Simulated assay, not measured.
Amino acid sequence: MELTTVWFILIGVLWIGYFVLEGFDFGVGVLLPILGKDNTDRRIMINAIGPVWDGNEVWLLVAGGATFAAFPEWYATLFSGFYLPLLLILLALIVRGVAFEFRAKHDSDRWRRGWDQAIFWGSLLPAVLWGVAFGNIVAGVPIDAQHEYTGNLLTLLNPYALLGGLVTLGLFLLHGAVFLSLKTDGDVRTRARALALRISPVVVAVAAVFLVITQLTHGKPITWVTTALAAVALVAGVGAAFRGREGWAFAGTAVTIVLATATLFLDLWPNVMPSSTSALYSLTVTNAASSPYTLTVMTWVAAIFTPVVLAYQGWTYWVFRKRLTRTPIAQ
């Protein structure tokens, strides 16, 4: 297998890891004012993701760095063409991170409400905009012969991409609600489980429509398999939630995100950024890649350090695996 294909797969894996792990973070952040009826409830929800949210964002940093190093043409076209949406995502993530750190610095309800709003919007915007961005990447955007984006902001706000934004928002909300029902106890757990059951029919319907449209317009034979498996995983996860099997429900939503993201990357390959102007102008794993020497060095670095990072993050989740309750916080 050529190194360009290897690194395309690795970047896909990094995005899968980011969406699975940061996905429930975003879901919890958006649900903060909905499920958190008082400050204690909201502290429980924040503490549920507190030890892991910043580690989850490492997947995004590594995905961006790997794209820059392995496919510099892709990185340049993507960040120049999607400048405003990606800037909004970056600002939202910064504000969200600051909110987690500063919320408890001052004992004031008004102070906490302000930072809670920052967490909400800092989670909502990326949850929607990542779906919009990937919808555009898969569908293709206007790129000229110099591999420069020739559209504008309105070009990115097309119906298919906006539907993709609704799908990521819905999946992350469901993923976050299931995570809270798995990670907490008491009223927060009860409300999270009830919300997951209420929104699941809508999430299933919207995700099904998006994946079917994707397959009919950009699909390949192999991705019909991943699409079907994603649908089965989502339905199975929802079914587990109805039966109160929270661990299996979380596994179901996680596998759904894995397979849905894999479907998008498989539909994209061998392109990394298709051109809607002309297929001849599309960026591919070949014409957007770095030199073989660069890819070889990156492969050795990834082989050495990736297991260390995975082991550390796995250890973090294991240490903070217990359910959270009101008792220690309310005292």
Rank of each mutant, 00 (worst) to 15 (best):
D38C: 01
G114R: 10
G55P: 05
L32C: 01
L32P: 00
D109H: 09
F102W: 14
Y75C: 01
S123P: 09
N47S: 15
G23H: 04
F26A: 08
R112F: 05
W115H: 10
G29Q: 02
F26Y: 15
G27V: 02
W59A: 03
P51V: 14
F68A: 06
L60Q: 07
A69L: 13
W74K: 04
V52Y: 09
P33S: 09
V20S: 03
D25G: 04
R103K: 12
W53C: 06
A104G: 12
S80C: 06
L87W: 12
E22W: 01
V95T: 14
A118D: 04
A118W: 11
F100R: 01
R42S: 04
G122Y: 06
L86F: 14
V62Y: 09
S123C: 08
V58H: 11
G114L: 11
A104M: 06
A48R: 06
L124V: 10
G27Y: 12
P51N: 11
R112W: 03
A99H: 07
R42H: 08
R43V: 10
L124E: 00
A63T: 09
R42F: 14
R113Q: 11
W115M: 10
L86M: 15
K37G: 15
F79N: 08
P51L: 13
F71S: 01
A104I: 07
G97Q: 03
G23K: 00
V52I: 15
D107S: 14
R112V: 09
D116E: 15
G114T: 00
W115Y: 15
A92G: 11
Y83P: 05
V52Q: 06
A104N: 12
L87F: 15
D25R: 08
A63V: 12
G64K: 01
L60K: 07
W121P: 00
V58N: 11
L91Q: 01
T40F: 13
A99T: 04
R113G: 03
E57K: 14
L31C: 08
D109R: 10
L60P: 04
L93N: 05
R103Q: 06
R96I: 08
P72V: 12
F82W: 02
L31I: 03
P72K: 09
I94F: 14
A76D: 05
E22R: 01
A76N: 11
A70K: 02
A70F: 08
F71H: 01
G29L: 05
K37H: 10
R96A: 03
L90W: 13
G114A: 10
V28Y: 04
V20Q: 06
W53D: 02
W59S: 02
E101P: 07
K105A: 09
M45D: 10
L61A: 12
S108V: 08
T40R: 03
G64T: 10
Y83A: 02
D25I: 01
L31S: 11
A92P: 02
P85I: 00
G122P: 02
G29S: 06
V52R: 06
S123H: 05
